[in-house]
Design a binder for these strands. Structure first.
Length: 767
DNA sequence: ATGCCTTCGGTTTTT
DNA sequence: CCGAAGGCAT
C-alpha cells in the first residue's frame, strides 16, 4: 500500500523507460473489444465487462499500455478498487506485464486513496494529519453515548439502525447540513440529523473519522478549497475505476471531480452484477455514465471465456427480466454444451442437502475435484445444513467467511462442558471451561497452577485433583467455594445425564453453569458481530441436539466431525454466500434455496419492492455465472422454517419428513381466524375457506388440501403421462404442494403451509 | 372454544 | 411488512 504520508510530487521526474513504439505484444493477444478498451485512451470510457469476459486483464493491460506508451507517468495515474485484495492483484499483474514494479502511482481502495488526500489537507476539515480511523464498534459506542446524553430512547431507535441511517447519508455525500429537512424528520422523530451533527463534532474533537467520512471529507475539502481540487485534477491524467457498479454517490462525485481536467476516466463494471445497494451502492451511477461524461465511449465485453452456452443462456434469461440495465448478451466461447443447467425441486431443506451431497459424490466419482465445487447460498445461516450433510458423508469442506460451526469458540466451550459431564477425567476439557465464566481459575492464577501441579505430581486427572483439593486449604477460600460449586454441578448433571433428553440436559448445563449468561453479558457489552452470533450459535447447538439419542452419541458425532475436518490440504467443497462468491469461479456450482422467502429474500422484497427483486435477480445471475460446467439450482417445495425463533427446530434436523397432515374439516360457515395462543389459519384464497390448525412445531404443521384443475398448476419436472400421485406442483396462489390424488383433470393437492405468493414465477421459472 | 392485541425477530459486509 | 407465539378476555 502507498505510504499515506508520501505527498512528494516525484511523478514530475520522468524516471521511466523510453516509450514503447507500436503495440506491445500483450495487446495483440486480446480480442477486438478488449483491445479497444485498452487502446481507447482519449476521453471517458465505460467498459461493460460481463462475467468471465476478462475484466481484470483489460484493466491491468490498459494500465501497462498507458505507462509503456508514455501517455502518463506512474504518478499521474489513479487506479481505484474496492478491496485491498483487488488492489494487490492489480499491482502484481501490471508489474508482470511491464516486467518491472511500478512506483509512485495512486493505486488503492477508495478509502485508502481518500484517506491519503484527507491526511494531506486534514486542517481544512478540522483534523490533523495523524487522525484515527475508527471501526464499527467505536462508531456504535460513540453514537450510544450521544443518544444517551440526548435522551433518545435506545429501545425505539437502536444505535445500530441510526448508525445505518447516518452511514447512508454519508454514502450519498450528505453532511448534516445537506440532509433535506423532510428526510431528517423521517428518522428517530427528527432527532437523527441533530445526532448526526453531534456525532461529527465528537469525531472531530477526537481527531478521528469513520470510513464514510474519508470520502465525505475529501468532498468537503474540494468544495472549500478549489485550488486543492485543481491540483489533483491537473495531476491525474488517467483515472481507472474497478467495479464501478458498486460505487456510492460520494465515490461517484469524487471521481467526477478528479477526472474533470483530463477527462480520461475509464470505469469498468457490470450493471448486472451490482449486488451491494444495501450498503449504499448506486446502480444508477453506471446506468447514467454516458450522461455524466458526455462523449463517453461504451465498450461491451460480451465474449465469455468461462461458462458453457447453457449456463450463459440461463443466466441471460434470468437477468433479461430486469428493466434497469444497460443490456448486453454474453456470447459463449466454450464449445462444451453437453450439460444443461439443472433445476431440481426437493421437498424440504434436509432432502435438498441430501440431494446436493449425493450429486457431489457422483461428480467426484466422475473425477471432478472437490476444489472445483461450490455451494452458494443466499444467507449465512443456510450453510449449516450443508455442513451437516458434508460431515455425514465425510466430504471435506470449507465455509468461506466464518469458522466452521464446531470450530467456533463458544461451541467448543459447550462441548468441553459435555465432555466433562460424560467423562470427568477429560482434563483438557475441564481446563478449557474451568474459568468460563470466571471462577477464580484464570490461565495464570495461583489456583489453576496449584490444581495442575497437584494433578501432575499425583498422576491423577484434573478433576480428581480438584475433588481432593476442595477439601484442603491449598486453595484460596473464594476459589475453593466456586470450585466446590462447580464440582457439585457436574455431579448433578452427570446424575441427570441418562434421564433427560440431550437438548434439555445441555440447555440446563449452559444455564446453571452460568456460561450462557456470561456470553449474553458479553453480547450486551460488546456489540461486535462475533459476540452477537455466539449466543445464537449456542441456542442452535441446543436445538440441533434433538436428533441425538444420548450425550454419548452426540460426542461421538462431534469427534468424528473433527476428524474429518482435521485432514489438512485435501481438496474441499466450498460453501459460501453468493455475495462472497462474486469474482470467483468453479467448474460445478450448486445454488440451493431458490424458493421464495429465502431467495429471493423476503425482507429485501418487503423493504424495497421491485428494485430489490431486480437485485435478487442480479445475485442469481452472479450465482449461475460462477460455474464453468454445471450450475445446479434447487429449491425446497415445503417452506423451510428457519430459526426465526432460536429454540425452534430447524427443518434440517427433522429426521423424517412427516406425512402431509390433511385436515379436511371446516364446514362452510365455520368461523376462521386466529385462535387461542396460536393462530388458526384459514385459506385466504379458495372459494370455500379451508380451516387448518396452524400452531405448534413445524413438523406438526398441517398442509392445506385443495382440489384444483390440472391446467392451473405447473409441475416442476413434467412427467410423460400427465400428473401422478406424488408430483410436486406449483400454483400461483397456493404456492407449492404435492399431488395426493388424481381424478381426471382434477387434482387433490396438499399445499405447504400458508398461501405463498408467487415470486418464484418471476424468478426460477424464467430460466 | 374463540378472538383480539401485543411482541419479537428477520440478509447480504468491505473499508 | 409479516408471521409466529404469548397474554388475556370472554
Amino acid at each position: 500500500m502507498n505510504d499515506p504520508f508520501d505527498f512528494s510530487d516525484d511523478y514530475l521526474e520522468p524516471a521511466q523507460p523510453a516509450p514503447v513504439q507500436g503495440p506491445p505484444s500483450y495487446v495483440e493477444t486480446l480480442n477486438p473489444e478488449q483491445r479497444m478498451a485498452v487502446e481507447e485512451t482519449d476521453g471517458p470510457v465505460l467498459v461493460l465487462a460481463g462475467a468471465g469476459t476478462g475484466k481484470t486483464r483489460v484493466l491491468t493491460t490498459r494500465l501497462a499500455y498507458i505507462m509503456d506508451h508514455g501517455l502518463a507517468y506512474a504518478g499521474e495515474i489513479m487506479a481505484v478498487t474496492f478491496t485491498n485484495k483487488a488492489a494487490a492483484e492489480m499491482k502484481e499483474r501490471v508489474a508482470a506485464l511491464l516486467g518491472r514494479p511500478v512506483e509512485g502511482w495512486w493505486l488503492g481502495t477508495f478509502h485508502a486513496l481518500a484517506a491519503r488526500m484527507v491526511r494531506a489537507h486534514a486542517e481544512v476539515v478540522g483534523l490533523t494529519s495523524n487522525f484515527t480511523i475508527i471501526d464499527t464498534d467505536d462508531q456504535i459506542r460513540l453514537l450510544k453515548q450521544i443518544m444517551e446524553a440526548e435522551f433518545i430512547d435506545e429501545k425505539k431507535n437502536p444505535a445500530r439502525n441510526l448508525m445505518g441511517v447516518i452511514q447512508r447519508w454519508k454514502d450519498r455525500g450528505l453532511t448534516p447540513e445537506k440532509v433535506s429537512p423532510g428526510e431528517g424528520a423521517a428518522y428517530a422523530d427528527g432527532a437523527a440529523v441533530r445526532i448526526y451533527k453531534i456525532y461529527q463534532e465528537r469525531l472531530r474533537l477526537n481527531n478521528a473519522c469513520d470510513f464514510g467520512d474519508l470520502l465525505l471529507h475529501v468532498l468537503t475539502i474540494f468544495a472549500e478549497q478549489p485550488q486543492i481540487l485543481e491540483q489533483y485534477q491537473r495531476r491525474f491524467r488517467y483515472v481507472l475505476v474497478d467495479e464501478y457498479q458498486d460505487t456510492n454517490v460520494s465515490q461517484y462525485l469524487w471521481l467526477r471531480l478528479l477526472a474533470k481536467q483530463h477527462r480520461n476516466i475509464c470505469c469498468v463494471g457490470d450493471d448486472d452484477q451490482s449486488i451491494y445497494s444495501w450498503r449504499g451502492a448506486e446502480v444508477a451511477n453506471i446506468l447514467k455514465f454516458e450522461k455524466d461524461f458526455p462523449g463517453a465511449k461504451v465498450i461491451r465485453l460480451e465474449r465469455n471465456y468461462r461458462s458453457t452456452a447453457h449456463i450463459l443462456g440461463a443466466a441471460s434469461g434470468l437477468i433479461s427480466y430486469n428493466e434497469d440495465r444497460l443490456g448486453k448478451t454474453l456470447q459463449p466461447q466454450s464449445k462444451d454444451d453437453a450439460i444443461k443447467v439443472r433445476v431440481e425441486s426437493l421437498w424440504d431443506g434436509e432432502s435438498e442437502a441430501r440431494f446436493v451431497g449425493d450429486e457431489i459424490e457422483a461428480l467426484q466419482a466422475k473425477g471432478e475435484s472437490l476444489n472445483e465445487m461450490a455451494i452458494l447460498v443466499r444467507a449465512g445461516f443456510q450453510t449449516r445444513e450443508f455442513e451437516e450433510r458434508m460431515i455425514t458423508l465425510g466430504l471435506p469442506y470449507k465455509v468461506v467467511g466464518g469458522l466452521r460451526f464446531y470450530e467456533r469458540e463458544e461451541i467448543r466451550d459447550a462441548i468441553a462442558y459435555l465432555r466433562v459431564v460424560n467423562q470427568p477425567n477429560d482434563s483438557l476439557a475441564l481446563e478449557r471451561i474451568i474459568n468460563k465464566p470466571s471462577r477464580g481459575f484464570g490461565p495464570k492464577t495461583k489456583g489453576l497452577q496449584t490444581l495442575l501441579e497437584y494433578a501432575r505430581k499425583s498422576q491423577i486427572s484434573l478433576y480428581s485433583a480438584a475433588m481432593t483439593l476442595v477439601d484442603t486449604d491449598e486453595l484460596s477460600p473464594k476459589a475453593r467455594t466456586s470450585l466446590r460449586d462447580l464440582l457439585a454441578q457436574f455431579e448433578l448433571w452427570r446424575s441427570l445425564k441418562d434421564g433427560l433428553d440431550v437438548d434439555d440436559l445441555v440447555g440446563q448445563i449452559l444455564d446453571e453453569s452460568g456460561y450462557m449468561d456470561w456470553r449474553i453479558a458479553e453480547t450486551k457489552k460488546q456489540k461486535d458481530m462475533k459476540a452477537q452470533g455466539r449466543v445464537d450459535n449456542l441456542k442452535e447447538l441446543v436445538s440441533g441436539l434433538k436428533e441425538f439419542e444420548s450425550l454419548n452419541e452426540f460426542l461421538e458425532h462431534v469427534s468424528l466431525v473433527m476428524e474429518v475436518q482435521d485432514r489438512a490440504d485435501d481438496a474441499k467443497v466450498t460453501i459460501m454466500t453468493l455475495h462472497a462468491a462474486k469474482g470467483l469461479e468453479f467448474d460445478n456450482v450448486f445454488l440451493p434455496g431458490w424458493e421464495e422467502g429465502t431467495f429471493p429474500n423476503q425482507r429485501a422484497l418487503d423493504e424495497s419492492g421491485n428494485s430489490a427483486l431486480e437485485e435478487e435477480r442480479r445475485l442469481g445471475y452472479v450465482g449461475i455465472t460462477r460455474a464453468r460446467k454445471r450450475s445446479i439450482i434447487s429449491y425446497a417445495l415445503r417452506r423451510r422454517v428457519f430459526g426465526q425463533y432460536n429454540d425452534m427446530l430447524p427443518s434440517r434436523f427433522v429426521s423424517e419428513l412427516p406425512e402431509p397432515h390433511i385436515e379436511t374439516g371446516g364446514e362452510t360457515g365455520t368461523p376462521s381466524g386466529d385462535y387461542g395462543g396460536g393462530n388458526y389459519g384459514y385459506s385466504k384464497f379458495g372459494d370455500n375457506p379451508q380451516r387448518f390448525t396452524y400452531r405448534g412445531k413445524s413438523e406438526n404443521r398441517p398442509q392445506k388440501l385443495v382440489t384444483i384443475d390440472a391446467f392451473d398448476v405447473t409441475v416442476s419436472e413434467a412427467p410423460d403421462g400427465g400428473f401422478r400421485k406424488g408430483d410436486h406442483v406449483r400454483h400461483g396462489k397456493f404456492g407449492s404442494g404435492v399431488v395426493l390424488n388424481v381424478d381426471g383433470n382434477k387434482l387433490d393437492i396438499a399445499f405447504a403451509s400458508g398461501g405463498r405468493k408467487k415470486v418464484i414465477d418471476s424468478f426460477v421459472e424464467k430460466i
